[in-house]
């Protein structure tokens, strides 16, 4: 069954002279599948993931997005998250004044409430958080800090992965989560993805490097240029791109 179905999606920056960024994008992700998108800088990869997560920076001018058979674009960002969409941001924002653990407890409880489950109590939550953090080599000290404040590039990416493993999404959107990670961290992040992956779930992984795909085997690799997907293949396409670059695609 289709988990995500994007048809002819057009989107522009939502301001008076905002340019069109997505120009007729099609993509279907079935349950259990892992898709990778590769493409040159500025082609709209992050824009796509932000639109899926519910950002109001963009205006959809054409097309449709269905998630689990429902119109995704109708829903607000927090509803999408609570229904299982998770975006690991390319550039996670720093939020001074809100402790990481407080923030994550609110997020998890929002999801539990949404799914009519009982909220997690504080002690139990801290236990869960510590245990997950340990496997990702995130220290208690980092959890006490405000959200992403003062984290190094790689630490921010690990923190995104921690959040993903706590919120246990159905559709994970990973926007360059591998950028800035050292080899060990890359392996841990990949393990994190493989750990929560199941036949019910899907992933959309945006990356510039084939390296990550050595650890997370994608079912499909897409090339995105100029706001749409222009070629789809399997893992071998990633290897080819790594060798030859995007020249063959008019970039």
């Amino acid at each position: 069954m289709d988990l995500l179905n994007i048809e002819n999606l057009h989107a522009r920056v939502d301001n008076p002279d905002g340019q069109e960024i997505l120009k007729g994008l099609n993509l279907t992700i079935k349950k259990g599948e892992i898709h990778a998108i590769m493409g040159p800088n500025g082609t709209g990869k992050s824009t796509l993931t932000k639109i899926l997560a519910g950002s109001d920076e963009y205006e959809i001018t054409q097309g449709s997005v269905n998630y689990n058979g429902e119109d995704l674009l109708e829903k607000e960002a927090h509803e999408r998250a609570n229904e299982g969409i998770f975006l690991a941001f390319q550039y996670p924002v720093e939020i001074p004044g809100i402790a990481t653990s407080t923030f994550l407890r609110h997020a998890l409880n929002a999801k539990l409430r949404h799914n009519e489950k009982e909220e997690i109590d504080n002690l139990e939550f801290i236990k869960l958080l510590r245990q997950k953090a340990k496997t990702l080599k995130i220290s208690d000290e980092m959890l006490k800090r405000p959200v992403n404040v003062g984290f190094s590039g790689g630490e921010k990416k690990r923190m995104e992965t921690l959040q993903m493993s706590i919120l246990d999404p159905h559709l994970g959107l990973l926007d360059e989560t591998d950028s800035g990670l050292d080899i060990d961290a890359l392996r841990t992040v990949a393990e994190g993805v493989n750990y929560i992956h199941s036949k019910e779930k899907g992933f959309l992984i945006i990356t510039h490097y084939q390296r990550l795909l050595d650890y997370i085997k994608p079912d499909f690799v897409h090339i995105m240029v100029g706001g749409k997907i222009i070629k789809t293949g399997d893992y071998k396409l990633a290897i080819e791109l790594e060798e030859k670059g995007y020249q063959a695609y008019g970039v």
Partner: peptide
């Protein structure tokens, strides 16, 4: 707006997200 989106993209409703951000602002 980026901080607001980050919180709502994690499932926190917009009102609570605003409340949290404003508390953080005043907590200084």
């Amino acid at each position: 707006p980026e901080q607001l989106f980050y919180l709502t993209a994690r499932g926190i409703n917009e009102n609570l997200a605003r409340n949290l951000l404003l508390q953080a602002f005043l907590n200084e």
